[in-house]
Design a binder for these strands. Sequence first.
DNA 1: CCTCTACATACGTCCAATATATGGAACAAG
DNA 2: CTTGTTCCATATATTGGACGTATGTAGAGG
Lengths: 298, 298
Amino acid sequence: MELRHLRYFVAVAEERHFTRAAQRLGINQPPLSQQIRQLETELGTDLFRRLPRGVALTEAGEGLLEDARRLLRDAELAAERVRRVARGEQGRIRLGLINSASFHPLIPRVIREFRRRYSNVTLSLEERTTPSLAAAVRRDTVDAAFVRPLLDGGEDLHVEAVLDEPMVVALPSGHALAARAQVSLLALSLEPFVLFSRPVGAGLHEEIIRACREAGFSPRVVQEASQVSSIVNLVASGLGVSIVPASMQQMHTEGVIYRPIRRPAPKARLQLICREADRDAPQIRNLLALTRELATRA
Amino acid sequence: MELRHLRYFVAVAEERHFTRAAQRLGINQPPLSQQIRQLETELGTDLFRRLPRGVALTEAGEGLLEDARRLLRDAELAAERVRRVARGEQGRIRLGLINSASFHPLIPRVIREFRRRYSNVTLSLEERTTPSLAAAVRRDTVDAAFVRPLLDGGEDLHVEAVLDEPMVVALPSGHALAARAQVSLLALSLEPFVLFSRPVGAGLHEEIIRACREAGFSPRVVQEASQVSSIVNLVASGLGVSIVPASMQQMHTEGVIYRPIRRPAPKARLQLICREADRDAPQIRNLLALTRELATRA
DNA sequence: CCTCTACATACGTCCAATATATGGAACAAG
DNA sequence: CTTGTTCCATATATTGGACGTATGTAGAGG
């Protein structure tokens, strides 16, 4: 049984006339008769009583008519649903983000605007570390993620630059350097550092180390953490200093003072990653476009 | 879109592998790829992400998988429903009967037994006159009916003899003939008669007139009625005598006495009619068989 | 780098859906 | 009763499309 049989059956049932039904279907009468016969054979019973003038439904036919109409409608609905998902009007997107991304106003703005524009798309959020998110995207547990630059190449991933903000120094509030309007990296050379571990911080960690090296020293790391918010809190407790994205100043943690870094300041790059294969998936496309739009506007 | 596409799609989605799915479907891999591509083209989106090892569902594909499974199951159920109706296990039958049929024990017995044996078949009853039932059967408002012999030929109808019972005389209880154990028709020649009108009584009316003619007189009809029960009541009220099927004695109406008619007594024939075209319809076949079975057993 | 795996593509084949032509049954009209 | 008309079935031809075979191609793994 194919949907064709049901389409033909419904036409004949509605017209109660093979020839007219065939015209309506855009085929000739004999093939229509054949297809109906075929359906009747498969179902093991006549669906029509052939009368001198047209046909009438048998009891079995009458029962099938309702079912056939419903099936055809359901098939059409299923196709329409797929098309809506394809157009990005419906569906779901699993978005990952690192903890520090939440602090830059762009990211909440992107999320809010996506929810507003594509209200029939379920947007779920997952906060994790950069390498964990990269792995999740690769294994198809997360569709896209805002992350720091990856340490590995990320060949199978599409990587889109989103933000490139300066980093600042985070100092315990009583610190001597807090008196200055600007801090040079070299001034921090003897300070104890609180930083991301290398795998967790990924490109951000590397950028800090690189900048320090360029300034002429290697930072002495006394404590590692896996979330910026933890780092800021550790700085507040006086454990050491840190270098964090400028947007972290939003956090307003008591006991922490931020100071700009004298040029060249290290940059905190934020990227949006997704599977290369999914780059053209509607939800991904929409998210990429929206992010670009809001990023350039800001 | 055809059900074939959905069947193929579900196979690939479940195997996550074209070649294995093709084996399961009993076809080769290239045509399967083709059919899936065709479906994807029609729906305007990819349903699978082609990976180095097998495939994965896209979001659109994931949505379609549920719908496709449901559609295929529904189609199978619809086919099964038709087959059940065809086997007479399910469905409906609209049975007509004339008033007098209810008084012969066979008819209620047939109805009761049909309901018991085919409990998933909805049996509806409609009590009307013989010509009205014949018309109803012809216009497909009623599927089968217990009636008296038709006046017209009934070529388009299947007519099955069910019962052939003797008729008896119905007399007002005070009537002189009530004293006799048996009444000859000729003894009624001067009596006022209460009878069916010719169209309503159909063959029954004709049989009575024929029998009287044979006995040598034409009955004087003073009142007509369209139901036997009315006739019996009219006899009870003293309006005249009548000739009714023997089973009417069941009615036990006060003021009416029944007496056998001396041979040759007129016969009340009861028939079961249905559309000739429907003769092989399962419900009709079952009803015919059951009626024959109970009629011969009695 | 080569091989293996797995899906895509190219092309030929064959079946089945369709078109054309004809038959046959049931009415209606004459 | 005959004739014409209507309408579905049957017969035969045609064609499109589903399928099979052979080959290409891209990625993963040794």
